[in-house]
Simulated assay, not measured.
Amino acid sequence: MKLKDRVALITGSGGGIGRAIALVLSRRGCHLALVDINEEALLQTAEQAQLLGVQVTTHPLDVADREAIRQLPAAVHAAHGRLDVLINNAGVALGGTFEQVSEADFDWLMEINFHAVVRLTRACLPLLHQSDNAQIVNMSSLYGLISPPGQTAYSASKFAVRGFSNALRHELEGTPIGVSVVHPGGVATAIAKSARVPGSVSAKEIEEERSRHEKMLRMTPEKAGEIIVRGLEQRQARILVGADAKAVALLERLLPVRYWSILKQAFRN
């Protein structure tokens, strides 16, 4: 897929992997419609992308807002006249075991990590069908390949994204629209620090869990963004980001039930 003069819509583009993807795309000559709940961060991404000579529009909104999602494709079409790439990147994290996490917090995470992906994909499909060569890129996770304890909500959402993406790809065979699902390994973003945590979890437990997760975040967002965009250009069905994601994917394939007996020590150190 040639990205020059295409138009990409990216959610969660105010920072982290979303910003990195936006800047890699802009270096390829791809015009951008940027979405994030943080307007200030969104404008910073836009300023950096505009320096690379592409057209950029910003759309500050909460992806859990159904009406805002319904109206977004029309705003993108009015500004750019087309849409070729949809990147559902926005996501949140939630710590705690299933019994610690409230129903409200579980639903909050699913709204952003999964239902927003489905709604925006549905809203954008008519525009994507007008393209001669389009791609949907949905962000799953390492935890969309394996399911560690303490990640019931997050893992459920990322497995849901994976299943949705795979089935949608099969349904869209024979059309100009491809679907990629992305499984990043340990990428150094702020998601662990900004994770919502139940009130029943002690401050010590929170700090220990965050420290464990941050030790695994080794890859820069910039490198992850380049890998993801290369996968988009090659229209890969599955994009594994990092050696850790590739190793875990292989282990899960070999030991689909028993993988945790091998991985749990590494995750607890």
Rank of each mutant, 00 (worst) to 15 (best):
T45G: 01
V63E: 05
F164N: 08
R235L: 08
L72M: 04
L34E: 01
A123C: 09
I10L: 09
L254D: 03
F106Q: 03
H59G: 04
L52Y: 00
L251P: 03
W108S: 01
G185E: 01
E171G: 04
V7E: 04
L94T: 00
M110G: 00
H31L: 01
A156L: 10
S140M: 12
T189N: 05
M216W: 14
V201E: 00
E39K: 10
H129V: 07
S147H: 13
L128R: 03
W108T: 08
E67C: 02
E208G: 00
L128E: 08
E226C: 10
S140C: 11
G15F: 06
S102G: 13
S140D: 11
V137N: 05
L232A: 07
V197R: 12
N38K: 05
A8M: 06
N88V: 09
R122K: 15
G18K: 08
A64M: 10
G81S: 12
A203Y: 10
V161S: 05
R218D: 11
A156M: 12
A190D: 15
I10D: 02
I21S: 04
A78T: 13
V241M: 08
Q44Y: 09
A79F: 03
P221K: 05
L34V: 03
A243D: 13
Q48I: 06
V137L: 09
V63P: 08
R268F: 00
M219W: 03
V229S: 07
L9E: 04
G225E: 01
A8Q: 06
R212S: 02
L172D: 05
A123Y: 02
A237H: 02
R238F: 13
G14D: 05
K223D: 15
P126W: 06
F98M: 14
E226D: 11
L51W: 00
T58H: 02
G15K: 10
L172K: 06
V101Q: 08
V229Y: 09
A49L: 04
G15T: 10
T11V: 10
C124T: 14
S180C: 06
A192K: 12
Q234C: 10
L128G: 10
L3S: 00
T11L: 06
F159S: 03
G53N: 09
E40A: 14
A195P: 06
L240Y: 13
G185H: 09
F164H: 06
T57C: 12
E214C: 11
F267V: 11
T45I: 06
R235C: 02
N113H: 01
Y259S: 03
H183D: 02
I239R: 08
R196A: 13
R6T: 14
H80T: 06
K193D: 14
G186A: 08
A123P: 04
M219E: 13
F164P: 05
L61F: 05
R230A: 15
A90C: 06
V248A: 02
L43S: 12
I17V: 09
I228T: 04
L52M: 12
V92P: 01
